[in-house]
């Protein structure tokens, strides 16, 4: 598994797209930190950008790479290794390559300019976001047969998670604002990995505001660390579940 991952990493880190992605992230974070004297404000700006770019690049790049390597996958299947090993090896390889781009592009600047609990939270949620969207990319790839459909589906998932979903939630809130919606809201948040990552950062940046909420459930959720535990666990579920489904499909898939 790790052998496959190793060679995939060696392959990807030389790819132009990943280098461009690293440079893009680095340019964004450096520009923000250089032009803004206030570190917290910088972290806020990076968060905003990160929530859009990281899922997009993770899911689209992973999908593209997966499809470009179809014949290579066939070759691997003809070797004496199990399909599970192949898929997990690919996942580890692709996700760690994208993650290292994220690490170099975002984490290093944050560590240098804004080393703080908020900074670390930003890194953690970015990393989890990368993993969950690579995992979703694998699901996309095993569900579809050709590249165009795969990338189309990947883009749709991204668009849905980053924009449509929250819009629907807001609409839902407008319609049912008279009802007690605390539980429902927490449940809805769990349905979107981007929201989960956002909540993690909110708990750092806006804890003062979040503490102002009267409802007992929100108080518990925001105030006692339960929110952090919840978000982390759900984020892990978002990483593991799509990958497991992809694995189930891949084991029975004709190449």
């Amino acid at each position: 598994m790790l052998k496959i991952a190793k060679y995939i990493i060696l392959d990807i880190i030389r790819s132009k797209v990943i280098i461009a992605y690293t440079l893009l992230l680095m340019a964004i974070s450096l520009t923000i930190f250089m032009t803004d004297a206030d570190v917290t404000k910088g972290l806020v700006s990076i968060t905003t950008v990160m929530m859009i770019i990281v899922p997009l690049v993770s899911i689209v790049y992973a999908t593209t790479y997966y499809f470009n390597a179809t014949e290579f996958t066939e070759l691997l299947v003809s070797q004496p290794i199990s399909r599970q090993t192949i898929l997990l090896g690919k996942f580890i390889g692709i996700s760690s390559a994208i993650m290292s781009a994220f690490f170099v592009g975002i984490c290093i600047p944050v560590l240098i300019f804004a080393f703080s609990v908020t900074g670390l939270t930003l890194m953690a949620s970015g990393a989890l976001l990368t993993l969950s969207f690579v995992s979703l990319a694998f699901l996309t790839c095993t569900l579809t047969r050709d590249k165009a459909k795969g990338i189309g589906l990947a883009l749709m998932i991204w668009f849905y998670c980053s924009i449509i979903f929250d819009g629907l939630v807001l609409l839902f809130l407008f319609c049912f604002s008279d009802y007690p919606l605390e539980k429902v809201m927490i449940f809805l948040t769990a349905l979107n990995p981007i929201d989960l990552a956002r909540i993690l950062i909110l708990l750092q940046l806006d804890i003062s505001a979040l503490m102002g909420y009267t409802g007992a459930l929100y108080q518990q959720f925001f105030g006692s660390g339960q929110g952090i535990v919840f978000s982390l666990i759900m984020q892990l579920v978002w990483i593991v579940t799509p990958l497991l489904i992809a694995l189930r499909i891949f084991k029975k898939k004709d190449l």
Binding site: V44, G167, L170, L173, F174, L181, I201, D206
Partner: peptide, 19 residues
């Protein structure tokens, strides 16, 4: 203003749609 009327929307703080 929205959060004033619908406090539950606090969960959407800093989301793309809110920005």
């Amino acid at each position: 203003q929205i959060i004033e009327k619908i406090p539950q929307s606090v969960m959407l703080m800093r989301s793309f749609i809110v920005n």
